[in-house]
Design a binder for these strands. Sequence first.
DNA 1: CAGTGGTCTAGACCACTAC
DNA 2: TAGTGGTCTAGACCACTGC
Lengths: 253, 253
Amino acid sequence: MGTTQLESVPEPKYWHLKTVLTEALDSEFSVGEILPNERDLAARFGVARATLRQALEQLELEGRLQRRRGVGTTVAPPRVGVAVGTEQHAWPGAPGDAWQAVDCTTAAPPAAVAGALETGRDEPVHIVRRTRMTHGQSVAAELLYIPESSVPELSAIDAPAGPARVRALLRELQRMELEGQDSAVELGSARADDAKELDRLPGAPVLVVTTRYFAEGRTAALSVATYRADTCRLTFGDSGGVEIHQDPQRRAS
Amino acid sequence: MGTTQLESVPEPKYWHLKTVLTEALDSEFSVGEILPNERDLAARFGVARATLRQALEQLELEGRLQRRRGVGTTVAPPRVGVAVGTEQHAWPGAPGDAWQAVDCTTAAPPAAVAGALETGRDEPVHIVRRTRMTHGQSVAAELLYIPESSVPELSAIDAPAGPARVRALLRELQRMELEGQDSAVELGSARADDAKELDRLPGAPVLVVTTRYFAEGRTAALSVATYRADTCRLTFGDSGGVEIHQDPQRRAS
DNA sequence: CAGTGGTCTAGACCACTAC
DNA sequence: TAGTGGTCTAGACCACTGC
């Protein structure tokens, strides 16, 4: 009765480790600095390497660390804010667009895309692959689906391949009046092709932003953009975003 | 020369396993169904349990599975779309608000919050804790920071504690004209208190939505909301969101 | 109580990077 | 070639759920 033992829950080691490392990162390391390797760190903390890795994985997920095979673990810079929802809507490819076209094909859409486009599974769509750069690093890869019926002029003349074709496609889109758009954000893991584009390993956590563009009473285009979750903070709305990390810890100064 | 050996890269086992399981989930299982336990599954696929778990973790991250200690692994329902960016901005607590207050304290703000509020580190803020329910399950936990200077009337009269105090606080806020708001979304991991609120383990992946509310030429309130990343799809914009998962796999029917 | 997922260990080997 | 992080194994024990 009345033992002083509160909190009988033993905190998992990797959780405690993460806390310790977080504090160390805040106080003793600066951005870009390389940490000791995993074997040394594990030994220093007296845990198995797998346990240490569990803590490192979480810190990487939170954007505090960056790990690269063959190189080492470094302290990551703060996440960059990337604007994904502007106040005034605009077609992809409009002036000021941050995206850069990579290539372009025409094929039958995946079932899920066909559903969102409310188009038949048989109607081919143009698929434009684009990437988005910020501060010299690529932060997102996008697949832009445009049904042939959205750009009827283009399919008739069979435009040239490559970048010229992309330009023609987007120019055709912009001739319509954009009636609205909406977006959704969810967590996903990078497919092999996206991972390559983003310089990450397959399965890396990404924020998937799906945007529908409405024109002429239907969905005229669909964009599926995958952003690096470790380095990006997606901003919506009036101004440039907020500088907050989820770090409501109070430090007794 | 010209060996047929393409793709000399050996695909990691857990990655292949994930693919196989994904296909099985699509074709052979229905929502809510329970999978065999991890030890059986690992044996069936001829891998160590840790390897199997790596695949399951990714599937849970993608919202395909739900795992609960002591119970088992079940097939998750599709993610629910939750609206976080309405076209017409509104104060927290406005009519139609999906949030429910839990409690309320007054304290010095964490340093990061003080920065975003552009208030002194010394000025106390009201901290309202709220939760958001959808379809009978809680999907988000929020901390709402309101500087005392944003609700001067309230601090003067020293309102009653509990829910009544929260109502008084939000009522005071709504007397100001909301001049704008902006939001940012980033990936995080659940703190212990949030995890408890969300019925998840600490460290579970969450989408952190940080919203600033502007009034009278400054930031009048700050909301930090953590959404369950496994079950939620955050929607912004005109209509109710998109029904797309990142699943551009084409099935040869 | 039996059965589940969660944590942890002490190894091993592989893929990649840089010198 | 040496050193890094990434994958994988075969165990063990713990915390939690439901009967």
